[in-house]
């Protein structure tokens, strides 16, 4: 019996493929035969190992594998992998989106800021150019052959808050040298806003010495008295002595002279 080993039946036995009678005979033999017992044990172990080594992949394994694959992918895709906990994933994503939106908005803002600054510069430049153009227009109008156009040029002074010296000088020249009385009068009125300027004061005094039109004379006298210009006393005294000075101018001078001497 001992010689009659059942080695070749072991796999079938382990697989449960033996018939009932064969199975009983096999078990009976294995109980008596140590060789066969040993063989069966080895075979069983082998089968078990085999079973353990090659399991059909369970769902858990599958997810694990895919997670591992994902991680591997991630490891390969990025040089620096920020460590992130899976549980904090959604917040970090939101933060990332927020950050990118913020970046986008910031970039946009920055761009529009620069654009704005550029636009402001452009506007400032344009304004400067307009002022330049106005000034050129004003100066050229003041040289026009037509008195009405010269008056229009002089009236342009209303466009300037802070006229520069060239404009003041051009107006002063109109008051001193224009052949047309109306232009001189308009130039006087235009300068009346800037009596704090030394140029204007000196122009008024010079104009008073040479002006023949009584209306302009009396207007200059009033303006000089208003700013208490002491230097105006001399030309006024000269006007008093002149024969062709109109009586009402003399009256005016006599009335105001004490207040500035």
């Amino acid at each position: 019996m001992e010689k009659n080993h059942v080695f070749d039946q072991i796999p079938d036995y382990l697989d449960g493929n033996l018939s009932k009678s064969d199975r009983a005979a096999f078990e009976k033999h294995v109980e008596q035969c140590t060789d066969c017992q040993k063989e069966l044990e080895e075979m069983k172990t082998f089968f078990n190992v085999f079973e353990e080594e090659v399991p059909t992949p369970s769902n858990r394994l599958k997810t694990k594998f895919e997670a591992a694959l994902e991680q591997e992918k991630n490891n390969q895709g990025k040089v620096v992998q920020m460590e992130s906990k899976p549980s904090a994933n959604w917040t970090s994503n939101v933060l990332k989106i927020a950050a990118s939106i913020a970046l986008l908005v910031a970039a946009f803002q920055m761009g529009s800021l620069f654009q704005q600054r550029k636009a402001n510069e452009d506007i400032a430049q344009l304004q400067d150019e307009t002022n330049q153009m106005k000034q050129t227009a004003m100066l050229s109008l003041m040289e026009n052959q037509s008195a009405s156009k010269r008056i229009q040029g002089v009236n342009y002074i209303e466009e300037f808050e802070q006229p520069d010296a060239a404009i003041i000088q051009a107006l002063a020249n109109r008051l001193l040298y224009d052949e047309n009385d109306n232009v001189r009068m308009t130039a006087f009125e235009a300068l009346a806003k800037f009596t704090s300027s030394e140029t204007v004061k000196n122009t008024y005094i010079e104009a008073l010495e040479q002006e023949k039109n009584p209306s302009i004379q009396v207007a200059i006298i009033q303006a000089l008295v208003q700013i208490q210009e002491k230097k105006a006393a001399e030309p006024m005294k000269k006007l008093l002595e002149k024969e062709d000075t109109q009586p009402f101018i003399k009256d005016q001078i006599r009335a105001v002279l004490p207040s500035i001497t």
Binding site: S146, A147, S148, K149, I151, Q152, N155, D181, N182, M185, T186, N213, P214, S215, Q246
Partner: peptide, 10 residues
């Protein structure tokens, strides 16, 4: 639109 200017002294 050119200005009109009318002055008299007396």
């Amino acid at each position: 639109d050119s200005p009109i200017s009318l002055y008299s002294t007396n």
